[in-house]
Write a protein that binds this DNA or RNA. Sequence first.
DNA 1: AGCATTACTTACCTTTTTGTAACCTTATTA
DNA 2: TAATAAGGTTACAAAAAGGTAAGTAATGCT
Lengths: 130, 130
Amino acid sequence: MLIGSTIDSKKMKTFLPVGTCPIRDILSRLGDKWSLLVLVTLKANGTMRFSDIHKSIGDISQRMLTVTLRSLEADGLVNRKVYPEVPPRVEYSLTPSADELMLPLHSLVEWAMKNMQDIVSSRELYKNKG
Amino acid sequence: MLIGSTIDSKKMKTFLPVGTCPIRDILSRLGDKWSLLVLVTLKANGTMRFSDIHKSIGDISQRMLTVTLRSLEADGLVNRKVYPEVPPRVEYSLTPSADELMLPLHSLVEWAMKNMQDIVSSRELYKNKG
DNA sequence: AGCATTACTTACCTTTTTGTAACCTTATTA
DNA sequence: TAATAAGGTTACAAAAAGGTAAGTAATGCT
Protein backbone atom coordinates (compact mmCIF):
# COMPACT_ATOMS: atom_id res chain seq x y z
CA MET A 1 0.00 0.00 0.00
CA LEU A 2 1.18 3.41 -0.87
CA ILE A 3 1.41 5.84 1.98
CA GLY A 4 1.43 9.18 0.24
CA SER A 5 1.71 12.73 1.38
CA THR A 6 -1.45 14.69 2.00
CA ILE A 7 -0.83 16.60 -1.18
CA ASP A 8 -0.19 15.31 -4.66
CA SER A 9 3.28 16.57 -5.42
CA LYS A 10 2.25 17.23 -9.02
CA LYS A 11 -0.36 19.70 -7.87
CA MET A 12 1.72 21.12 -5.06
CA LYS A 13 2.78 24.70 -5.49
CA THR A 14 6.47 25.33 -5.38
CA PHE A 15 8.58 28.48 -5.26
CA LEU A 16 11.74 29.45 -7.04
CA PRO A 17 14.96 29.60 -5.05
CA VAL A 18 16.63 32.87 -4.10
CA GLY A 19 18.59 34.28 -7.01
CA THR A 20 15.99 33.01 -9.44
CA CYS A 21 12.88 34.40 -7.80
CA PRO A 22 12.86 38.20 -7.74
CA ILE A 23 10.26 38.34 -5.04
CA ARG A 24 12.21 36.21 -2.60
CA ASP A 25 15.23 38.24 -3.51
CA ILE A 26 13.63 41.58 -2.81
CA LEU A 27 11.87 40.53 0.35
CA SER A 28 15.05 39.06 1.75
CA ARG A 29 16.78 42.33 1.02
CA LEU A 30 14.18 44.25 3.02
CA GLY A 31 14.29 41.66 5.76
CA ASP A 32 17.57 42.75 7.25
CA LYS A 33 17.89 44.44 10.59
CA TRP A 34 17.60 48.07 9.56
CA SER A 35 16.17 48.64 6.06
CA LEU A 36 12.50 48.82 6.93
CA LEU A 37 13.18 50.95 9.95
CA VAL A 38 15.16 53.44 7.91
CA LEU A 39 12.39 53.61 5.32
CA VAL A 40 9.73 54.13 7.95
CA THR A 41 11.84 56.81 9.60
CA LEU A 42 12.20 58.69 6.33
CA LYS A 43 8.50 58.32 5.68
CA ALA A 44 7.64 59.77 9.05
CA ASN A 45 9.99 62.73 8.82
CA GLY A 46 10.46 63.47 5.13
CA THR A 47 13.87 64.54 3.90
CA MET A 48 16.52 63.94 6.54
CA ARG A 49 20.24 64.34 6.97
CA PHE A 50 22.45 61.43 7.91
CA SER A 51 22.75 62.61 11.48
CA ASP A 52 19.00 63.10 11.79
CA ILE A 53 18.34 59.51 10.83
CA HIS A 54 21.06 58.43 13.18
CA LYS A 55 19.50 60.31 16.09
CA SER A 56 15.99 59.22 15.23
CA ILE A 57 16.80 55.53 15.21
CA GLY A 58 19.16 55.78 18.12
CA ASP A 59 20.63 52.33 18.34
CA ILE A 60 21.99 51.93 14.83
CA SER A 61 25.74 52.21 14.39
CA GLN A 62 27.18 54.72 11.97
CA ARG A 63 28.55 51.92 9.84
CA MET A 64 25.23 50.07 9.59
CA LEU A 65 23.39 53.26 8.75
CA THR A 66 25.81 53.88 5.91
CA VAL A 67 25.58 50.29 4.70
CA THR A 68 21.80 50.29 4.88
CA LEU A 69 21.41 53.63 3.13
CA ARG A 70 23.78 52.53 0.39
CA SER A 71 21.83 49.37 -0.33
CA LEU A 72 18.53 51.24 -0.31
CA GLU A 73 20.04 53.74 -2.69
CA ALA A 74 21.28 50.95 -4.94
CA ASP A 75 17.77 49.52 -5.04
CA GLY A 76 16.35 52.89 -5.96
CA LEU A 77 14.43 53.29 -2.73
CA VAL A 78 16.18 56.36 -1.38
CA ASN A 79 17.59 59.47 -3.00
CA ARG A 80 20.93 60.73 -1.81
CA LYS A 81 21.78 64.35 -2.34
CA VAL A 82 25.23 65.60 -1.45
CA TYR A 83 25.87 69.30 -0.90
CA PRO A 84 29.50 70.19 -1.53
CA GLU A 85 29.97 72.05 1.71
CA VAL A 86 32.24 71.81 4.70
CA PRO A 87 31.32 70.19 6.96
CA PRO A 88 29.44 67.96 4.52
CA ARG A 89 25.70 67.87 4.21
CA VAL A 90 23.86 64.92 2.76
CA GLU A 91 20.11 64.64 2.50
CA TYR A 92 18.14 61.47 2.15
CA SER A 93 14.57 61.05 0.98
CA LEU A 94 12.26 58.33 -0.28
CA THR A 95 11.84 57.66 -3.97
CA PRO A 96 8.36 57.15 -5.46
CA SER A 97 8.70 53.37 -5.43
CA ALA A 98 9.59 53.44 -1.75
CA ASP A 99 6.56 55.63 -1.23
CA GLU A 100 4.40 52.98 -2.83
CA LEU A 101 6.00 50.41 -0.58
CA MET A 102 4.68 52.30 2.42
CA LEU A 103 1.11 51.20 1.81
CA PRO A 104 1.78 47.45 2.00
CA LEU A 105 4.16 48.12 4.83
CA HIS A 106 1.56 50.09 6.68
CA SER A 107 -0.90 47.22 6.53
CA LEU A 108 1.83 44.93 7.77
CA VAL A 109 2.39 47.19 10.74
CA GLU A 110 -1.33 47.28 11.40
CA TRP A 111 -1.39 43.52 11.42
CA ALA A 112 1.53 43.51 13.83
CA MET A 113 -0.20 45.95 16.15
CA LYS A 114 -3.43 44.02 16.07
CA ASN A 115 -1.79 40.66 16.67
CA MET A 116 1.14 41.43 18.91
CA GLN A 117 -0.68 40.64 22.12
CA ASP A 118 -1.63 37.20 20.84
CA ILE A 119 1.88 36.58 19.62
CA VAL A 120 3.46 37.54 22.91
CA SER A 121 1.13 35.33 24.91
CA SER A 122 1.56 32.51 22.44
CA ARG A 123 5.30 32.71 22.96
CA GLU A 124 4.88 32.61 26.71
CA LEU A 125 2.63 29.58 26.45
CA TYR A 126 5.05 27.82 24.14
CA LYS A 127 7.97 28.49 26.45
CA ASN A 128 6.20 27.21 29.51
CA LYS A 129 4.75 24.00 28.24
CA GLY A 130 5.50 23.48 24.54
CA MET B 1 25.68 80.96 13.40
CA LEU B 2 23.98 77.76 14.25
CA ILE B 3 24.16 75.11 11.61
CA GLY B 4 21.31 72.85 12.56
CA SER B 5 19.85 69.70 11.13
CA THR B 6 17.00 69.93 8.66
CA ILE B 7 14.66 68.66 11.30
CA ASP B 8 14.07 69.89 14.81
CA SER B 9 15.06 66.97 16.96
CA LYS B 10 12.18 67.73 19.31
CA LYS B 11 9.67 67.17 16.55
CA MET B 12 11.54 64.31 14.95
CA LYS B 13 9.85 60.95 15.15
CA THR B 14 11.81 58.23 16.82
CA PHE B 15 11.28 54.51 17.18
CA LEU B 16 11.75 52.15 20.07
CA PRO B 17 14.63 49.69 19.98
CA VAL B 18 14.16 45.97 19.39
CA GLY B 19 13.04 44.23 22.57
CA THR B 20 10.99 47.25 23.57
CA CYS B 21 9.06 47.79 20.36
CA PRO B 22 6.78 44.87 19.58
CA ILE B 23 6.43 45.85 15.96
CA ARG B 24 10.14 45.89 15.27
CA ASP B 25 10.35 42.66 17.16
CA ILE B 26 7.69 40.91 15.13
CA LEU B 27 8.81 42.22 11.79
CA SER B 28 12.39 41.19 12.46
CA ARG B 29 11.13 37.74 13.33
CA LEU B 30 9.35 37.43 10.00
CA GLY B 31 12.35 38.84 8.21
CA ASP B 32 14.49 35.74 8.44
CA LYS B 33 15.37 33.59 5.49
CA TRP B 34 12.46 31.16 5.54
CA SER B 35 9.48 32.24 7.65
CA LEU B 36 7.54 34.14 5.02
CA LEU B 37 8.21 31.49 2.43
CA VAL B 38 6.90 28.76 4.70
CA LEU B 39 3.77 30.79 5.42
CA VAL B 40 3.16 31.47 1.75
CA THR B 41 3.68 27.81 0.95
CA LEU B 42 1.12 26.77 3.54
CA LYS B 43 -1.28 29.39 2.27
CA ALA B 44 -0.97 28.12 -1.28
CA ASN B 45 -1.41 24.46 -0.43
CA GLY B 46 -3.43 24.32 2.77
CA THR B 47 -2.60 21.67 5.33
CA MET B 48 0.74 20.04 4.60
CA ARG B 49 3.00 17.43 6.07
CA PHE B 50 6.59 18.21 6.98
CA SER B 51 7.89 16.40 3.91
CA ASP B 52 5.43 18.21 1.64
CA ILE B 53 6.70 21.58 2.75
CA HIS B 54 10.22 20.34 2.37
CA LYS B 55 9.60 19.24 -1.20
CA SER B 56 7.66 22.36 -2.08
CA ILE B 57 10.36 24.75 -0.97
CA GLY B 58 13.14 22.57 -2.26
CA ASP B 59 16.25 24.31 -1.04
CA ILE B 60 15.53 24.52 2.67
CA SER B 61 17.46 22.17 4.91
CA GLN B 62 15.63 19.81 7.22
CA ARG B 63 17.09 21.59 10.21
CA MET B 64 15.99 25.03 9.10
CA LEU B 65 12.52 23.82 8.25
CA THR B 66 12.20 22.43 11.75
CA VAL B 67 13.60 25.58 13.31
CA THR B 68 11.35 27.82 11.23
CA LEU B 69 8.21 25.81 11.89
CA ARG B 70 8.93 25.79 15.61
CA SER B 71 9.26 29.54 15.78
CA LEU B 72 6.11 30.05 13.72
CA GLU B 73 4.34 27.66 16.02
CA ALA B 74 5.65 29.50 19.07
CA ASP B 75 4.29 32.73 17.64
CA GLY B 76 0.91 31.13 17.04
CA LEU B 77 1.13 31.38 13.27
CA VAL B 78 1.05 27.67 12.46
CA ASN B 79 -0.78 24.74 13.96
CA ARG B 80 1.13 21.53 14.45
CA LYS B 81 -0.82 18.30 14.64
CA VAL B 82 1.00 15.08 15.41
CA TYR B 83 -0.58 11.74 14.57
CA PRO B 84 0.77 9.02 16.85
CA GLU B 85 1.65 6.66 14.03
CA VAL B 86 4.74 4.92 12.78
CA PRO B 87 6.30 6.28 10.70
CA PRO B 88 5.26 9.60 12.18
CA ARG B 89 2.87 11.97 10.53
CA VAL B 90 2.74 15.66 11.35
CA GLU B 91 0.48 18.14 9.68
CA TYR B 92 0.98 21.88 9.55
CA SER B 93 -1.55 24.55 8.79
CA LEU B 94 -2.00 28.29 9.17
CA THR B 95 -3.73 29.77 12.19
CA PRO B 96 -6.31 32.56 11.76
CA SER B 97 -3.80 35.28 12.62
CA ALA B 98 -1.43 33.96 9.96
CA ASP B 99 -4.34 33.99 7.57
CA GLU B 100 -4.87 37.65 8.32
CA LEU B 101 -1.20 38.25 7.71
CA MET B 102 -1.63 37.01 4.16
CA LEU B 103 -3.45 40.15 3.08
CA PRO B 104 -0.67 42.59 3.95
CA LEU B 105 1.80 40.07 2.66
CA HIS B 106 -0.04 39.81 -0.60
CA SER B 107 0.13 43.53 -1.18
CA LEU B 108 3.83 43.40 -0.37
CA VAL B 109 4.31 40.75 -3.03
CA GLU B 110 2.33 42.83 -5.50
CA TRP B 111 4.58 45.77 -4.81
CA ALA B 112 7.61 43.54 -5.34
CA MET B 113 6.26 42.27 -8.64
CA LYS B 114 5.42 45.74 -9.84
CA ASN B 115 8.76 47.23 -8.84
CA MET B 116 11.24 44.44 -9.37
CA GLN B 117 12.25 45.56 -12.84
CA ASP B 118 13.08 49.02 -11.61
CA ILE B 119 14.98 47.61 -8.67
CA VAL B 120 17.05 45.30 -10.81
CA SER B 121 17.97 48.04 -13.24
CA SER B 122 18.69 50.45 -10.42
CA ARG B 123 21.13 47.92 -8.98
CA GLU B 124 22.86 47.56 -12.33
CA LEU B 125 23.15 51.29 -12.66
CA TYR B 126 24.53 51.64 -9.15
CA LYS B 127 27.08 48.91 -9.73
CA ASN B 128 28.34 50.42 -12.95
CA LYS B 129 28.72 54.02 -12.02
CA GLY B 130 27.60 54.67 -8.47
C1' DA C 1 17.89 -10.05 10.43
C1' DG C 2 17.84 -6.01 7.89
C1' DC C 3 15.93 -2.21 5.38
C1' DA C 4 12.56 1.53 4.57
C1' DT C 5 9.67 4.99 6.43
C1' DT C 6 8.96 10.07 8.60
C1' DA C 7 9.98 13.64 11.38
C1' DC C 8 12.88 14.98 13.73
C1' DT C 9 17.65 16.05 17.06
C1' DT C 10 22.46 16.79 17.74
C1' DA C 11 27.17 18.18 17.08
C1' DC C 12 29.91 20.67 14.38
C1' DC C 13 31.37 23.96 10.88
C1' DT C 14 30.92 27.89 7.54
C1' DT C 15 29.00 32.06 6.07
C1' DT C 16 26.71 36.23 6.74
C1' DT C 17 25.55 39.97 9.38
C1' DT C 18 26.39 43.32 12.68
C1' DG C 19 29.19 45.96 15.97
C1' DT C 20 33.46 48.65 17.73
C1' DA C 21 36.76 51.75 17.48
C1' DA C 22 39.94 54.38 15.10
C1' DC C 23 40.91 57.24 11.27
C1' DC C 24 39.89 60.74 7.27
C1' DT C 25 38.63 65.28 5.07
C1' DT C 26 38.66 70.45 5.01
C1' DA C 27 36.91 75.01 6.25
C1' DT C 28 35.75 77.51 10.26
C1' DT C 29 36.05 78.92 15.01
C1' DA C 30 37.93 79.56 19.73
C1' DT D 1 47.21 75.92 17.02
C1' DA D 2 44.02 72.93 18.02
C1' DA D 3 39.44 71.60 18.29
C1' DT D 4 34.99 71.02 15.87
C1' DA D 5 31.77 70.04 12.43
C1' DA D 6 29.30 66.00 9.29
C1' DG D 7 29.49 62.08 6.92
C1' DG D 8 31.72 58.99 6.09
C1' DT D 9 35.77 54.65 5.52
C1' DT D 10 38.61 50.91 7.20
C1' DA D 11 40.30 46.93 9.78
C1' DC D 12 39.07 43.91 12.94
C1' DA D 13 36.13 41.20 16.25
C1' DA D 14 31.90 39.14 17.71
C1' DA D 15 27.60 37.23 17.16
C1' DA D 16 23.93 35.27 14.71
C1' DA D 17 22.17 32.57 11.14
C1' DG D 18 22.33 28.85 8.33
C1' DG D 19 24.16 24.38 6.37
C1' DT D 20 25.96 19.35 6.63
C1' DA D 21 25.95 15.00 7.96
C1' DA D 22 25.04 11.63 11.12
C1' DG D 23 22.09 9.53 14.45
C1' DT D 24 17.34 8.35 16.69
C1' DA D 25 12.69 6.21 17.22
C1' DA D 26 9.18 2.49 16.39
C1' DT D 27 6.98 -0.27 13.22
C1' DG D 28 6.03 -2.98 9.06
C1' DC D 29 7.78 -5.31 5.10
C1' DT D 30 10.88 -8.76 2.81
